[in-house]
Design a binder for these strands. Structure first.
Length: 263
DNA sequence: TACTCTGTTGAATA
DNA sequence: TTATTCAACAGAGT
């Protein structure tokens, strides 16, 4: 399920290992999440380093090991991070396993849409430095949003909200939630969104990200029933604002839920 | 058995 | 060249 706040939640799952030295590295080298990586070199380079810190950017995570090792993690659809005890025996879908003295850091991903990146160097890798501004960055201004919408004027808004170049961290439920809050139909073309609605969209996006971080990012809490969130998962749900039955349909290949009356 | 899915990518098309 | 669309990826749950 990993979107913005879920990613933040998973990032912290490895915190109990901070400050510990990596004793051994297990890599599931024939699985997609580690494709194209220099396994042997990587194993050797990581062993002996100390887990120092971690950070997120949208759905991406970066883990820093001293000295000079950086691991990027993307959870894909079904990836998760967890800690296991020090004697952990890697399971079928444990693609990256780092053994520390007191516990084990595990990246597990059954559906294998996740991805691991590796960098050896004193500076953060370019694939991290070059990421577009996050929704809560000061650089994510109204003007920035307007420019992005204009650049994608022929595309419906829903798929663009899922575009990580424009809205890092936004995933399917957050996209539906913000459109519902803004009373914007998901199929509206970006170029046809009025200036006032663009402003509302900018405001609600930032607000939703802050709220999601608080509710889900800290302890995986459940958002209140006043959000679309609790009503959008299966057919037959009702709009928490006007009580009309919600619509669920495929839009450009992704399940989309909205209120035909409000939006 | 068959159908679902909180995501990304790369190739084809416009 | 840039934007948009679509199928492919893969497995578990229902």
């Amino acid at each position: 399920m990993p979107e913005l706040a879920e990613v933040e939640f998973y990032r912290k799952e490895w915190d109990p290992g901070l400050g510990e030295k990596v004793k051994k590295v297990h890599l599931h080298t024939d699985a997609r999440p580690l494709r194209d990586l220099p396994f042997a070199k990587m194993k050797k380079a990581i062993a002996g380093t100390v887990f120092e810190s971690s950070t997120t950017h949208g759905k991406q995570m970066l883990f820093r090991f001293q000295p000079d090792i950086w691991l990027g993690v993307h959870l894909g659809m079904t990836g998760k991070l967890l800690v296991a005890d020090a004697k952990h025996k890697p399971e079928k879908h444990d693609h990256l396993v780092l053994f520390l003295p007191s516990l084990t850091l595990v990246f597990r991903d059954p559906r294998k849409f996740g991805r691991i990146k590796f960098h050896h160097g004193s500076e953060a890798p370019s694939w991290w430095a070059d990421l577009p501004p996050e929704v809560l960055d000061s650089e994510f201004t109204k003007q920035h949003l307007v420019q992005f919408l204009d650049r994608h004027s022929k595309s419906p808004i829903k798929p663009q909200l899922l575009n990580q170049d424009g809205f890092p961290g936004i995933g399917n439920w957050m996209a539906d939630e913000v459109l519902w809050r803004t009373r914007l139909h998901p199929a509206t073309l970006c170029g046809e969104i009025p200036a006032k609605t663009r402003e509302a969209l900018w405001k609600e996006l930032r607000k939703l990200c802050r709220e999601a971080m608080k509710v889900i990012g800290t302890d995986w809490g459940t958002p209140p029933d006043s959000w679309l969130f609790n009503h959008r998962w299966k057919d037959g749900g009702f709009c928490p604002r006007c009580d009309d039955q919600l619509v669920r349909a495929d839009l450009r290949g992704r399940m989309t839920c909205w209120c035909a009356k409000c939006q």
